[in-house]
C-alpha cells in the first residue's frame, strides 16, 4: 500500500525516552507505525503485527498501531532511530532533512522481527558489537 509518512513527537515517545533510550518502553513507543483502521483492514493486519515500511532511502520493520484519529493514506512513525531509517539525506541547502511527507510503501511483514536499538547501532557501525 502506498502512503504518505509523517514523523514527529508523541506523548508516548517523549515519555519513553525519559525511561532511557535503551528501555523496552522507548522501543515500544517509537518502533510503531500508526495507521488508519481502513488501511489496516485493506492490508489485513491487526494492531501489534509487524509491517515493513519502505521509502526511497531505506526500509524498516515496525509494529502496526491504530491511529487515534481517522486519516486514510497517512501513516505516522514517532521520531527515533526506526523512523529515521526512512528519511533521506537531502536537505535542499537548508540543513533540515524532510522528516514529513515522505512517500512510502507499507506491507505486512509476518514473522519479521523489529530490530532493537543496539542492533540498529551495531549495523550502523558495520559490525557485530556487544554492549
Amino acid at each position: 500500500m502506498k502512503a504518505v509518512l509523517i514523523t514527529g513527537t508523541s506523548i508516548a515517545q517523549a515519555q519513553g525516552k525519559e525511561h532511557g533510550k535503551l528501555s523496552a518502553k522507548y522501543k515500544d513507543s517509537v518502533a510503531v507505525c500508526e495507521m488508519d483502521e481502513s488501511d489496516m483492514a485493506a492490508l489485513k493486519i491487526e494492531p501489534g503485527q509487524t509491517v515493513k515500511v519502505t521509502s526511497p532511502y531505506g526500509s524498516i520493520t515496525v509494529k502496526a498501531a491504530k491511529s487515534r484519529e481517522p486519516r486514510p493514506g497517512l501513516v505516522f512513525i514517532p521520531v527515533g532511530p526506526w523512523a529515521n531509517r526512512l528519511v533521506g539525506p537531502e536537505t535542499g541547502g537548508t540543513g533540515t532533512p524532510s522528516y514529513k511527507g515522505l512517500e512510502v510503501e507499507v506491507e505486512p511483514a509476518p514473522g519479521e522481527k523489529v530490530p532493537d536499538l543496539e542492533e540498529l547501532m551495531a549495523e550502523a557501525r558495520g559490525g557485530n558489537e556487544k554492549w
Binding site: 532511502y57 527515533g80 532511530p81 529515521n84 543496539e118 550502523a124 554492549w131
Partner: peptide
Amino acid sequence: SHMPWAAVKNLANIPVAVVDPTLTATSL
C-alpha cells in the same frame, strides 16, 4: 536517534565523544 540513516552511518565510523546524563543511541 534524530538524523537520517546516511548521517548516522557516517557518525558511527568517526571518533565520537558523548557527554550526557543518560545512555543514548549515540552513546552506543
